[in-house]
């Protein structure tokens, strides 16, 4: 096994895949490009803005998009939301991994609803990234379109957070439920919950 849960001998072939990398930080874009080259991706398109990415998805068939969430003008969330609701087929369904630094309070809802296939928080290592790519490729979740959401079905088996992912904020709930802090309910109270009775008048 690799140190991040993928079997070390598992073979993956990305040499035919076309990957779009979007980040307004040129250095981060270069670094990400090198990592994908290391993964064996031969066709990568790098661009420094989501607006530029809009033009690219209209003209190029892509297999994976990796986009930074925070960018001026159009951010990563708005780009994915636009893509998922566009009439571009099959581009609208392209697996899209959103890379986030710190999720600002004002952006959390946007992140949940934008329709990304996976949101990865930094710090990320190549192992984390590769694991997410394999996961996104294997999990062919159906695409859901409704008034409030367009994107991969958000309902999938809850197997807990991905291996190695710890809560980020101090007030995040831990993965383990822990011991009960209140006394057990009396049987009569439980019965009442299961078979409610009319309150006496």
């Amino acid at each position: 096994m690799s140190d991040y849960g993928l079997p070390g001998r598992l073979r993956i072939n990305l040499d035919q895949s076309v990957v779009l990398l979007v980040d307004d930080n040129p250095q981060a874009l270069d670094i990400m490009g090198s990592v994908f080259q290391g993964f064996g991706v031969k066709q990568q398109i790098k661009c420094g803005s989501a607006l530029e990415a809009v033009d690219i998805v209209k003209t190029t068939q892509l297999d994976l998009i990796v986009i930074d969430c925070s960018m001026p003008e159009m951010d990563g969330y708005d780009f994915v939301r636009w893509l998922r609701r566009s009439d571009l087929r099959p581009a609208a369904f392209t697996p899209t991994i959103m890379v986030t630094g710190h999720p600002a309070q004002s952006k959390i809802e946007k992140s949940r609803d934008c329709g990304a296939s996976f949101v990865v928080s930094k710090p990320i290592t190549p192992a984390v990234l590769l694991e997410r790519i394999v996961w996104v490729a294997r999990e062919e979740r159906p695409f859901v379109v409704c008034d409030a959401y367009a994107g991969p079905d958000r309902r999938f088996k809850n197997a807990g957070p991905p291996i190695g992912i710890a809560p980020r904020r101090r007030d995040d709930l831990p993965f383990e439920v822990g011991e009960a802090v209140d006394p057990n309910m009396a049987q009569a109270e439980i019965d009442l919950l299961l078979k409610p009775t009319k309150a006496p008048r």
Partner: peptide
């Protein structure tokens, strides 16, 4: 073809 996970991670 392609790479093993070990190879891909080492190259990256």
């Amino acid at each position: 073809g392609g790479l093993t996970v070990e190879q891909a991670l080492s190259r990256a």
